[in-house]
Simulated scan of single mutants.
Amino acid sequence: MTNLTQVSLESGFRDAMAHLAAPVTVVTVMAGERPHGTTVSAVVSLSMQPCLISVALAKSSDCLGYIAESNSFGVNVLSSHQHAMARQLAGKGAAKFDGIDWQESAGLPRLAGTAIWVACTALEFVDGGDHEIIVGQVLEVDTSPGAAPLTYHRRQFGTHVPSDIA
């Protein structure tokens, strides 16, 4: 495959993946005494018995290194009104948690006002190209009834709207 074809394939793939509606999540971990985390959309329910979840993080992610050190991570599914938080935590640097309301739960940073909270132990790290896939065993889960999740579709934030089709 020529380089031009590869670039075209990657560009087309990126555009195609933008058409997938995905929940907006923030994966969190403690980095010493301070919270750390990053906004991701690659989170998947993996198994019910045992309860497992998978998360994909770029190999260059600082968050990935902290998870490898601590062997634990949190998954915060943001609520529909938390798009500013999603943007802030998608950035880089230690100051990205400035002004973010959080508390410690299961030894991990749990963001306030989220639709779903899941605390995990990292069981396995799997190579996924330019990402690392983390398989986590669920230790704690909490949902906020009535909280609509924040979604990302066609490079825009939104939320799920139920269909009238039965």
Rank of each mutant, 00 (worst) to 15 (best):
D142T: 15
L139M: 14
T5F: 02
T25L: 00
K59N: 12
V26L: 04
A122T: 09
P109E: 09
G113H: 08
H131W: 04
A58Q: 10
Q49F: 05
D62Y: 03
V161H: 14
G99D: 02
F157M: 08
M30G: 11
K59C: 10
C120R: 11
A106D: 15
H131K: 04
L9Y: 11
S80N: 09
G107I: 01
P35D: 14
T151D: 05
T25F: 00
M48P: 08
K59A: 06
G129K: 09
T151M: 05
A18I: 04
A21I: 04
T151N: 01
P149R: 01
A147T: 06
G32I: 12
P35C: 15
K59T: 08
Q137W: 05
L57D: 04
A90C: 09
I67F: 01
D15L: 14
L4W: 00
Y152F: 13
V138L: 07
S70G: 13
H131R: 04
P35N: 15
C63M: 05
R155P: 15
K92A: 03
E140K: 14
G146K: 06
T114R: 12
H81K: 12
I116L: 14
A90L: 08
L123M: 13
R155W: 00
E124S: 05
R154M: 10
I133A: 11
K96W: 00
H153F: 12
P109I: 04
F73T: 11
A58H: 12
S8L: 11
M85D: 10
N71L: 13
E33L: 07
S80L: 00
W117P: 09
T143Y: 00
E104G: 08
H160A: 15
T159I: 10
Q103G: 09
R34S: 09
R155K: 14
V24R: 10
V126E: 00
R110V: 03
K59H: 12
G146H: 04
M17N: 05
W117K: 13
T159W: 02
T28V: 09
I67P: 15
P149N: 00
I116K: 07
A58C: 07
W117Y: 14
H19R: 09
V27P: 00
